[in-house]
Write a protein that binds this DNA or RNA. Structure first.
Lengths: 198, 198, 198, 198
DNA sequence: CGATAAACGAGACGGTACGTCTAGTCTTCCA
DNA sequence: TGGAAGACTAGACGTACCGTCTCGTTTATCG
């Protein structure tokens, strides 16, 4: 029978120290070389305290970055809405392209995806805690465009979102082509053609 | 100065044994738990023989599956071309959806992507040896549709291909939604709207 | 400053539970594998309760067996005295030999000696609470033999006792020879030769 | 099936480093606190190299001291033989008493006995490699005394040896009395009385 | 055709990290 | 307010692999 520790007695101080140590180590030595041993040492924490609350090294690091992202965005979050869906989307997609090109994001995001791919549990957490809020914000903008008659009324917004973002994501993940502002623009153009009202 | 072994003296018997052992072990215990030690033992081979010819565990396993795929497809490969681009694409996309759902492919493909994400070298090999031929076949079909006036003349086929496949790939990778024949159809419909002639 | 708990408030129920748990665990898994953790869990007691009242794991287990032995023998205890010192000693030594051969005694006694060797404190307790009463009984019988003129008047009884028992003990401890009734007899013969009146 | 490593490939350098480290650590921190981890670190050796060649921590430390003792004594070894068995034995026993009192020997010998008590394997090694040669030398002296008519012809020399040494050993092990030159003399007197010719 | 040099199987080596276990301390909560 | 419960820091346990490094043993050209 597996022991279930009592979360009410959990040390918040240790939890924070562990997440901070994980973040630091990832950016210092890279995700692949971060060990639970090193996190524990850096955090001034017994290894058991990590094993008690996380299933795996992946889960710790994942949590560390998720916590970071959740803090960053907080609750409210919205895409620009000038009324011009094309301009707004190009702005956003160019920003996204730039973000993916940022070496500081590169490592952690790739690490995140590495974990997500083969761990359905972490994938679910990722969707719920990170992707879902972002997607909702994006869909809000698309809905606004729908109301403005710029996007067809019956469009499946989940599918539309994939159409817009997945090409960019895949190109980045597989390094199968350059990520430029022009690419972002071309993608938006094609996307808008696909979803415009008949 | 790093020693460069002479490929002409390489033992083909050992090479085959290693790749076979790698494949077997991946399907038996899962990619993450396959070790070079285990591959060597299973193949009846010294560890050094693996280190001599491959850079990393990822490279071995990658090679093992690449070799498998390359054998499967051989040289020629073409998508169906009945003249009806919509019907042809839906057929292909439904088949792709089914393939991704196959548990036998699931594991290895996820493992492959795990390696690719953080190893640019393997990513390049993947593109050249696996993705490129497939993409070429797909682009050939799209060109045929272009000639038939079903797809706009100026369309960037690389981008178009991403528009068609990336949404499916991302949904599978992140498990962010169901992969059904209906999904395949909806994706093709949206895609064709995006690339149809003005 | 070390806290000295008030013995008057000590929970007798906990004490008994701890000693019982210690005894059970020793006979179940062997002395070397008994941990304070396991004793506390088995006794349904907090670890601190053990640390409060005992100095070490050895002290707990030692106490557990000492308590047991003290109960067994009670107060009165005497060697047989038929007037024939040779016959009486051979009887006693043969019994002792048999006791050492008993597998049920083997483990605990070896464990006891392990602790005693390197912990002077436990050694002192052992002498006072276990060895002294036994030795006193044995010396009583020797004194009786002295009075009967079977043992020299000036004999140092402490040394005599060592002469009689230490060879047997050492042979058992080091497993340096067989422990048989014949051995007991031979030992008694030699002993009596050493201590007989001039 | 337990793996049996090939002794011919064993690194003598590592073996020596391990034994030396073990000896150093025992005298620095005491036997009880010596860990395999520490020995490996001190010796500049992987832990596996220790586990490959020794069964337990006890076995390593044991070997370390046994190796030391074996070197010390070399092959030849004999007790003094002036023709006066009483004088010779008193000399030897006084020396033995002094040796046991030496704090530098105290620790290691107690540690040795701790291991021996509960590990029959080590006990056997101890008898063969350490005790047997010493006992043989002692028995040689007793045989010489037998030939000189100072000890009864039929005496069982193994038993006699125990009679002579076990009391001293037990008193030291259990700290049950003072170890003085006078004690040594008294012991020899009693011993000689036991074994003298009828 | 015999030497000679490479790749080979095997596996010991110094190491790192694993995940588990226990020590001994500290904290919380209950009776 | 003492004691059960158990989370905490610390660190050893024994195992699994890492990548490197000898060892002999094939093999396979070349002199």
């Amino acid at each position: 029978m597996p022991k279930h520790p009592d979360p009410s007695r959990r040390s918040e101080r240790s939890r924070q120290a562990i997440l901070a140590a994980a973040r630091e180590l990832v950016s210092e030595v890279g995700y692949a070389k971060v060990s639970i041993e090193a996190i524990a040492a850096r955090a001034g924490v017994g290894k058991q305290t990590i094993y008690r609350w996380w299933r795996s090294r992946g889960a710790v690091v994942f949590d560390a970055f998720l916590a970071l992202s959740e803090v960053d965005e907080g609750g409210g979050m919205a895409l620009p809405d000038t009324g011009d869906i094309e301009a707004d989307l190009k702005l956003v997609m160019r920003a996204t392209v730039a973000e993916f090109a940022d070496p500081a994001f590169e490592g952690p995001i790739r690490a995140l995806n590495t974990e997500i791919i083969s761990d359905p549990d972490l994938a679910a957490q990722y969707r719920e805690r990170l992707a879902a809020p972002l997607d909702e914000a994006k869909k809000a903008r698309l809905r606004s465009a729908q109301r403005a008659g710029q996007i067809a009324a019956g469009t499946d917004l989940d599918l539309a979102l994939e159409l817009l973002y997945a090409p960019l994501f895949q190109r980045w993940l597989h390094r199968s082509g350059p990520l430029t502002p022009e690419y972002a623009d071309a993608l938006v153009d094609l996307f808008l053609k696909a979803v415009r009202p008949a």
